[in-house]
Amino acid sequence: MSFREEHELHKRRFGRNLGLGLVLVGFVALIFGLTVVKVGEDGFSMQPQTQGEVQD
């Protein structure tokens, strides 16, 4: 008998881990997409717009 006998439980656990993995990958992709869109929006600036006023 093999020590690593496949139990139905292992299949279910694998299915759950795979599902969760795919959800996480999807979430990362979504956050990346959102970031690209938000950064590309009009009015978004990496530099403070009031920089000049602050220096004065």
Partner: peptide, 13 residues
Amino acid sequence: APRTDEAGFGDFF
């Protein structure tokens, strides 16, 4: 005995 009724992905869904 090992718990055999552990929830699968579909159960949480």
